[in-house]
Amino acid sequence: MVRVKNGVFFAVMLLFISMTLTAMGKKEQKTANYPDKDIEAVITWGAGGLTDNIGRNFMPLMEKRLGGSKIIIQNKPGASGAIGSQYVKNKPADGYTLLVTTTEAAGVWNVMGLSDLDVTDFQPIILLSTLNPTCYVKSSAPWNSLQELISDAQSRPGKIIAGYAAPGSLGHVAGLLFSEYSNSKFNMVPFGGGGKVKAALLGGHVEVAFNPLISVMGDYKAGNVKILATFSNDTLVKGIPALGKVEPRFSKVLPWGLMVMILVNKDTPVPIVKKLEEAARDALKDQKWKDFSDKYYIQTMGQTGKDFWKKIDLWKSTTTWLLYDAGVAEKSPADFNIPRN
């Protein structure tokens, strides 16, 4: 009797395992009258983060422009976005699964050995926005301008401690870009998260830090930090210098930032891609999106098709070679036919 019960028990468990496995491999194919059912949007970063916020603010606006279909948002974070992207890659190319991911998809996974997937494995819908990094210091720091910081860093290479979140992150590449083009060297230390970097800077454990503009604006307004530059050619906020203006040698790679984009699987039928592109472009003109992006210092991009690739190729080449030269990337961008710009 006991044995029978345990057998039933085991069977229930096996049933569950097999159910999950079949659910993973389910397939559906439908192309006519797109969209005639709900669309899944996969955000490759965690709930509550910046990318998530951008995705969740944008998707309802796009949804309004796609007839009656609903866009259902799912977060599939992990491995700098590679996990969620692989999930979408395994879905049919029918336009019912959208991928909301960041520019790490452009070569960074490849050179860092995280995944063989690349943005070229997908069909772009639109380049949504750029998150601009800033170089900032505590308000009590000795440097009042970017030039002062650069010359100090040049006079004692590797002595000034610079904080960033994680390898390959926005702040990390910004720091590398900064060192490379200003011929200076910092002691760059990762802190495991943007908030933690800021805490370390405010507590005086780190002297310089690189974070997206939005996450330091509050401290800037409160007078806790001095923002020495934004990584752009044009002034983004009155009173904060643009890197490209004060240091023209940077201007060819600027504006540099982490970009959020929407992709679908490659080989998605052209009419569907066109429909999605149109909806996305139109959604970017929505007043709601403008209010949101203004408030958070998010630069709206809006490139589709060829313009998308132009932006992405430049970003890819700048970023991957920087990571490789700094010894962070384990594989050379040349292995992936990424030209040096």
Binding site: P77, A79, A82, I83, M112, L114
Partner: peptide, 14 residues
């Protein structure tokens, strides 16, 4: 950022 003990599995990266 290098993978440690992931044995080529992308899921283990996180």
């Amino acid at each position: 950022g290098t993978p440690r003990f992931t044995f080529g599995s992308m899921e283990l990266l996180s």
